[in-house]
């Protein structure tokens, strides 16, 4: 039986504004789950809560039905690519890969031009190159589940295709949750799709649901 990440019962408010309240989502190994939603609807916060870096009063995150309590980051079950830069600005890429226990060859296999970036510091890379390397680093980490917040943002189209391919390869051994405003890219790789709206998740069965939920006007 493949591993399954599930979460629900997440309550998050910023002041009087309730951001997350009626969440239920599951992500089995072998699939990519996409989350779409308007700006400020809580997608990034949801991923941070599930990862464990944003404490909330109530949450239930489970692996195969087992509740993850306390500081479960140290179990290294879940890896997280934040919306912001992941690798510290003054860190060399090869050092970051070493700390992540990622073999550079696993990235060079899909992205050979990254070889010349390995000795460089993160701040010396363009935003797009940094993003794709960070995304690949998370996907090749030893965590069983990967949470990717806007992995396609700033990445040029030819590398978007590479990243989509890496995602489909990585899902053979991982469960992946991703969110991005480049929704066509999300639709093209996601096996399951949710829209986050009014603090709640809604499973999307077909693309028309996106229009109904007000995420897009029409589907071309």
């Amino acid at each position: 039986m493949s591993d399954l990440l599930e979460f629900d019962g997440i309550e998050l408010s910023y002041g009087p504004q309730r951001i997350l309240s009626g969440i239920y989502m599951k992500c089995p190994v072998g699939s990519i789950t996409g989350i779409l939603g308007r700006n400020g609807c809580g997608k990034s916060s949801l991923l941070k809560v599930v990862f464990g870096s944003l404490p909330v009063p109530v949450r239930s995150v489970r692996i195969n039905g087992q509740y993850l309590a306390g500081d479960y980051m140290k179990k290294r079950i879940i890896a997280y690519l934040p919306q912001e830069d992941l690798i510290p600005a003054n860190m060399q890429l090869q050092q970051a890969l070493r700390l992540f226990a990622v073999d550079p060859r696993s990235i060079l296999e899909y992205f050979p031009e990254a070889e010349r970036f390995l000795p460089l510091r993160s701040r010396e890379l363009s935003g797009g190159y940094r993003r794709i390397i960070e995304a690949m680093m998370v996907l090749h980490s030893r965590a069983t589940f990967c949470l990717l917040d806007e992995p396609f943002t700033g990445v040029m189209p030819v590398h978007v295709d590479t990243l989509r391919y890496v995602l489909t390869k990585a899902k053979e051994r991982k469960g992946i949750i991703l969110t991005d405003h480049l929704y066509r890219q999300v639709l093209s790789v996601a096996d399951h799709l949710y829209v986050l709206s009014d603090g709640r998740t809604f499973a999307i069965k077909d693309h028309e649901d996106l229009v109904t939920r007000g995420y897009i006007h029409t589907m071309d």
């Binding site: 464990g52 290294r76 934040p82 992941l86 510290p88």
Partner: peptide, 13 residues
């Protein structure tokens, strides 16, 4: 906001 790298390396804040 720059601690996520270390969070991924099993170090909570």
């Amino acid at each position: 906001g720059r601690l996520y790298f270390f969070h991924n390396l099993v170090y909570s804040t």
